[in-house]
């Protein structure tokens, strides 16, 4: 594996549609729940505690399945398609908001497009077909495997993305001082590493046993956001 591949995929400039998603921050700002840096800090801690373990674990679990297939080319298609389908259904059952299911699949589709063009592989074609695309963690798991990264790195990129998406949206929506926001992200780095490591450590479990943390306002505000007439962010 190449360290540069890791950086490419983690980079916010990797063209996988992330800039259009605020991960609930636009709705939180509109509801007056996040107005300043302290509000963003509390928001990001919530995202890291609740969204990141699920996203990172499903990313790493998908990566393990994909990497297993990559190592054993003789594996039949069903060897990999069945676990992928199971991961897809388990993640679907953890994503109760239709708006969030759509946002996850749209981001997955965008990532798949970028991944396929950047690190071509047969693996992408094994993901379950869905008109809106694969769930983002599944797409990321396969892309990280195609890029030759490890499951730990896959989980780390997933957890990091959970933080940087809304942080970048906050700079745009609230005009927060970008240096202060970077300082906040740097202060959260240790927690982000821990969450990623914990997710990678459970990735070998059956999909049913993977984390299922729910954050009520994530679902509720995503549904409210989807009803807005005008949105700046897709989610």
């Amino acid at each position: 594996m190449h360290r540069t591949a890791y950086l490419l995929l983690a980079d916010g400039r990797f063209p996988s549609g992330g800039h259009a998603h605020s991960s609930g921050l636009e709705a939180a700002v509109a509801a007056g729940r996040v107005t300043d840096l302290a509000g963003l800090e509390a928001f990001l801690h919530g995202r890291l505690s609740y969204a990141a373990p699920v996203t990172a674990a499903f990313t790493a679990a998908t990566h393990l399945t994909a990497a297993r297939m990559g190592r054993a080319p003789s594996a039949t298609e069903s060897d990999v398609k069945v676990p992928f389908l199971s991961l897809d259904r388990e993640l679907e059952a953890r994503t109760v908001s239709p708006a969030l299911r759509l946002a996850s699949r749209r981001q997955g589709r965008a990532l798949l497009r970028a991944g396929r063009n950047t690190w071509p592989s047969e693996l992408y074609g094994q993901l379950p077909k869905h008109p809106d695309g694969p769930h983002q963690p599944l797409a990321l798991g396969v892309t990280t495997a195609a890029a030759g990264l490890s499951a730990e790195e896959a989980a780390q990129i997933a957890a990091y993305g959970v933080l940087t998406g809304p942080a970048s949206a906050a700079v745009r929506l609230l005009g927060l001082d970008p240096y202060q926001v970077q300082n906040l992200l740097a202060r959260m780095a240790g927690s982000c590493d821990e969450i990623a490591a914990a997710a990678a450590a459970v990735a070998h479990k059956s999909p049913q046993e993977l984390p299922a943390h729910a954050a009520p306002l994530a679902d509720i505000s995503a549904e409210l956001h989807a009803t807005w007439e005008v949105r700046l962010f897709a989610s």
Binding site: R13, P15, S16, G17, G18, H19, A20, H21, S22, A169, R172, L173, R231, L232, F233, A234
Partner: peptide
């Protein structure tokens, strides 16, 4: 939706 980045959505991503 362009996430307040109209140029990004048509050019970079």
């Amino acid at each position: 939706e362009t996430g307040c980045c109209p140029h990004t959505a048509i050019r970079d991503d």
